[in-house]
Structure formats: C-alpha cells, structure tokens
Computed example of a mutant assay.
Amino acid sequence: MGKVDPNEAPEGYVAVEDDSPDACNFCDIEYRSRLCLGQVCSYDEREDGCNARYRLKPVAIWPYDSEGTPVEVPHA
C-alpha cells in the first residue's frame, strides 16, 4: 500500500488513510448520501491504492477590520 493522495477526494474534502473496519463512521460525508455513494474508498478502486475516508477541508478564517478588510495579526 502506498501513501494516500489527499486530493483524490470530492470538492471540499480531503482524503485521509483509514484501515479501520468502520471507516464510514468517521467519515465527514453523510453515510449513504448521494455524495457518499458516488465515492470510492476502497484500496482496490482508488488510484493511490489506499483505503480512505473523507474529512472536510480546513477553512482559514482571517480577521477583518471594521470595514471588512483582512488584517494581518502579528505572531509572537
């Protein structure tokens, strides 16, 4: 088995490797939803050869000033 390709996932999600027998319980895609049923999670169907589940992609939240302009935050 190789390394899971995080980009081999539906838009808005990232693929993570998962060999647990109940990977569907830890997937962020609703079980048996239309999106779920259209995905390939098994190593024998995926191009990267890994079992996978899907997690929502993290979204950066930037601070804004009172007029809606993004501002930088100094880091210590």
Score class of each variant (00 low, 15 high):
D48T: 04
G68E: 08
D44Q: 13
E67M: 14
A60L: 08
D18C: 11
N25T: 11
M1N: 09
P58L: 08
A76I: 07
V14R: 06
A15T: 02
G12Y: 03
E17R: 12
D5S: 14
Q39S: 09
A52R: 06
A60R: 10
E45Y: 04
G49K: 01
S33D: 05
M1W: 06
D44H: 13
C24T: 12
C41Q: 10
P70S: 02
S42C: 10
V14P: 00
L35D: 05
G38E: 12
D19A: 15
Y13D: 07
E8W: 06
G68F: 14
W62R: 10
R34E: 15
N51Y: 12
E45I: 00
A52V: 11
R46W: 02
F26H: 14
V16P: 03
L37N: 15
L35E: 11
W62S: 15
E8T: 05
G68Q: 04
N51A: 06
V16H: 06
D44V: 12
L35V: 05
I29E: 00
A23S: 14
S42W: 12
E47Q: 15
P63D: 06
C24A: 13
D48H: 07
C24Q: 11
L56D: 13
E72P: 06
E30Q: 05
A9F: 10
D5G: 03
P10W: 06
N51C: 03
V14Q: 08
T69K: 11
A23F: 14
Y54R: 04
C27K: 12
L37A: 09
Y54P: 02
R55E: 09
A60G: 10
C27V: 03
A9I: 04
G68I: 02
D18E: 07
S20Q: 03
L56G: 07
D22Q: 10
K57Y: 04
D28A: 13
E30G: 05
A60P: 08
V71Y: 02
Y54F: 14
P21G: 08
F26C: 09
S20I: 00
Y64L: 14
N51Q: 05
D19M: 15
L37R: 13
Y54T: 02
A9E: 02
S66A: 08
F26Y: 15
F26W: 14
V59N: 02
I61V: 09
S20W: 01
V59I: 04
P10Q: 12
D19L: 13
F26T: 13
E17K: 04
V71W: 01
R55T: 09
A9N: 01
D48A: 02
G38D: 08
C36E: 02
G49W: 03
C24G: 08
A76M: 06
